Deep mutational scan, measured.
Amino acid sequence: NEEPLPEGWEIRYTREGVRYFVDHNTRTTTFKDPRNGKS
């Protein structure tokens, strides 16, 4: 039961299956979860 991502964020996966987060607001990507700060 995960809380929803902030507005404008999306979860994607690399070809290796590593989860990362896309911030469409700033057009950046990060491996850090914007909901809780954990990677």
Rank of each mutant, 00 (worst) to 15 (best):
N1Q: 14
N1R: 13
N1H: 14
E2I: 11
E2F: 11
E2Y: 12
E2Q: 11
E3P: 11
E3H: 10
E3S: 10
E3G: 13
E3C: 12
P4M: 09
L5R: 01
L5M: 11
L5G: 02
L5W: 04
L5T: 03
P6H: 03
P6A: 06
E7T: 12
E7H: 13
E7L: 12
E7V: 12
G8R: 05
W9C: 00
W9A: 00
W9H: 01
W9I: 03
E10D: 07
E10R: 04
I11H: 03
I11N: 01
R12A: 10
R12N: 06
Y13E: 06
T14I: 03
T14S: 09
T14H: 02
R15A: 14
R15Y: 13
E16G: 14
G17N: 08
G17A: 04
G17I: 01
G17H: 07
V18A: 09
V18W: 10
V18L: 13
V18M: 10
R19A: 12
R19W: 05
R19Q: 12
Y20D: 00
Y20V: 07
Y20F: 11
Y20E: 04
F21Q: 00
F21N: 00
F21H: 00
V22T: 04
V22P: 00
V22F: 15
D23E: 05
D23Q: 05
D23T: 01
H24Q: 08
H24K: 09
H24N: 12
H24I: 08
H24L: 10
N25I: 10
N25L: 09
T26N: 10
T26K: 06
T26H: 07
R27L: 11
R27I: 07
R27Y: 09
R27E: 14
R27T: 09
T28M: 08
T28P: 00
T28E: 08
T28G: 05
T28Y: 07
T28R: 11
T28C: 10
T29A: 13
T29V: 15
T29D: 05
T29G: 06
T29W: 15
T30E: 02
T30Q: 08
T30L: 03
T30R: 03
F31I: 07
F31D: 08
F31P: 05
F31W: 12
F31Y: 12
K32R: 11
D33C: 00
D33Q: 01
P34R: 00
P34W: 01
P34I: 01
N36F: 10
N36P: 15
N36C: 15
N36K: 10
G37V: 10
G37M: 07
K38N: 15
K38H: 15
K38R: 07
S39V: 15
S39G: 15
S39E: 15
S39W: 15
